[in-house]
């Protein structure tokens, strides 16, 4: 593979203290994801999928090992540095949508652009909302939207700043099958349009099969790759 490596981990470990003693969540994870790739991380509940995603996005710190995004070592940066990096290069789609309840659909999409200090936040956000076919619901609050609509707003918010990498955590987990399908279609369409690198955490093998690569986690360890 000659393409540029966007996400890379080396010997990633995560251990936490529990009442029963030390608990290993991740054990020596090494992976590389190239620009524009779509990758699914699959595994049973408790296999460490969310933990890995958290570390890849720099939301949490590893006990040991390295993560780099776009060549930048995440944990050489401080927490604020990682936040800045997320703002510049990373987008998120969550299982629970994570829209801000007091903001309208449009304002939710504007938020990352505003945080980045962009003056054209409104125009860009309106354009993306149109792309996800929610322009007419721009002034609605999340609680006035259906689950599928909320997830489309969340996708619009994720793609609005044109991130290099998009992390999606069980994006269809809270949706019925048909709506889930439409959401996934949208996700892959936008991904293709923007040439984004997509890292998807799911236990839905059907969904995982739509990705170019599938990485399986079992008890914190990466299994042989299926593709």
């Amino acid at each position: 593979m000659t393409a540029q490596i966007v996400v890379n981990t080396q010997n990633l470990h995560k251990r936490v203290m529990s009442p029963e003693g030390e608990l290993t969540l991740l054990q020596g994870v090494n992976l590389s994801i190239a620009a524009g790739e779509t990758v699914a991380i699959v595994g049973a509940s408790g296999s460490g999928k969310s933990t890995l995603l958290g570390l890849l996005a720099g939301l949490d710190e590893p006990t040991e090992g390295q993560v780099s995004i776009g060549g930048q070592d995440l944990f050489a940066l401080d927490e604020d540095g990682r936040a800045r990096l997320r703002g510049e290069k990373v987008g998120f789609v969550f299982q629970a949508f994570q829209l801000l309840p007091n903001l309208t659909a449009l304002e939710n999409v504007m938020l990352p652009l505003e945080l980045a200090g962009r003056h054209d936040a409104r125009q860009v956000a309106e354009g993306v909302l149109q792309r996800v076919e929610l322009a007419e619901r721009a002034s609605h609050y999340p609680k006035q939207l259906s689950g599928g609509e909320q997830q489309r707003v969340a996708i619009a918010r994720a793609f609005a700043p044109h991130p290099q990498v998009l992390f999606a955590d069980e994006p269809t987990g809270n949706l019925d099958h048909r709506t889930g399908e439409r959401i996934i279609d949208l996700l892959f369409q936008l991904n293709a349009e923007q040439g984004t690198t997509l890292v998807l955490v799911t236990h839905d093998l059907h969904l995982a099969a739509r990705c170019q690569r599938q990485l399986e986690l079992d008890e914190g360890q990466l299994q042989a790759e299926r593709s």
Binding site: A83, E88, F92, N102, L111, L115, R157
Partner: peptide, 19 residues
Amino acid sequence: SRHLDNCAIMRCLGAEQAM
């Protein structure tokens, strides 16, 4: 309690602590 999530999301979306 209502803004914990908001803050976490804003941090995900690139907001620094000082910001």
